[in-house]
Computed example of a mutant assay.
Amino acid sequence: MPETSKYNRIVLKLSGEALAGDEGFGINPVVIKNIAEQVAGAKELGVEIAVIVGGGNIWRGKIGSDLGMDRGTADYMGMLATVMNSLALQDSLEQLGCETRVLTSIEMKQVAEPYIRRRAIRHLEKGRIVIFAAGIGNPYFSTDTTAALRAAEVEADVILMGKNNVDGVYSADPKFDSGAYKYDTLTYMEMLQENLQVMDATASSFCMDNDIPLVVFSITEDGNIKRAVSGETIGTFIKK
Rank of each mutant, 00 (worst) to 15 (best):
R122D: 14
D75V: 09
V130T: 14
G137I: 12
G127R: 10
L93Q: 07
T143Q: 03
E125D: 15
E99M: 10
M77Y: 04
A148K: 06
V130Y: 01
T73G: 00
R122E: 14
Q110P: 00
R101Q: 14
A120Q: 07
A133S: 15
G127H: 06
A112M: 04
A147D: 10
S92K: 14
K163A: 12
R118M: 10
E99Y: 00
E153K: 01
D144P: 07
Q90N: 08
T145S: 14
D144W: 01
A88G: 04
A151T: 11
G162S: 06
A81V: 09
A152R: 12
A81H: 09
L103Q: 15
D75T: 05
T73A: 13
N164I: 00
N85H: 07
Q90W: 06
L124W: 05
V154H: 02
R118V: 02
T145V: 05
A74P: 02
R101K: 15
Y76A: 07
A152Q: 12
S86I: 09
E113K: 12
L87V: 10
G78D: 06
E107C: 06
N138D: 13
G135F: 07
K126Y: 11
T146G: 02
A156M: 10
E125Q: 15
P114F: 08
G78S: 09
M161G: 00
R101V: 14
G135T: 09
P139A: 10
A133M: 07
V83G: 08
C98N: 12
E99G: 01
V102I: 14
N138P: 00
G135P: 03
V83N: 01
A120R: 02
Q95D: 10
Q95K: 15
T104E: 01
L103T: 02
D144H: 03
R119H: 08
V130Q: 04
D144G: 04
R101F: 07
K109H: 13
A152L: 05
S92G: 02
G78C: 04
G135K: 06
G135D: 11
S86D: 08
T73L: 11
E155M: 13
A81C: 10
G78T: 05
R101T: 10
M77T: 11
S92W: 02
R119M: 10
E94F: 08
L149Q: 06
Q110K: 13
V130E: 06
Q95S: 12
V102K: 08
N85R: 04
R118P: 00
R118N: 15
A147L: 12
Q90V: 04
G162A: 15
M84H: 10
E94H: 08
V83F: 14
A148N: 08
A112I: 03
M84Y: 05
A148G: 06
R119N: 11
V158S: 04
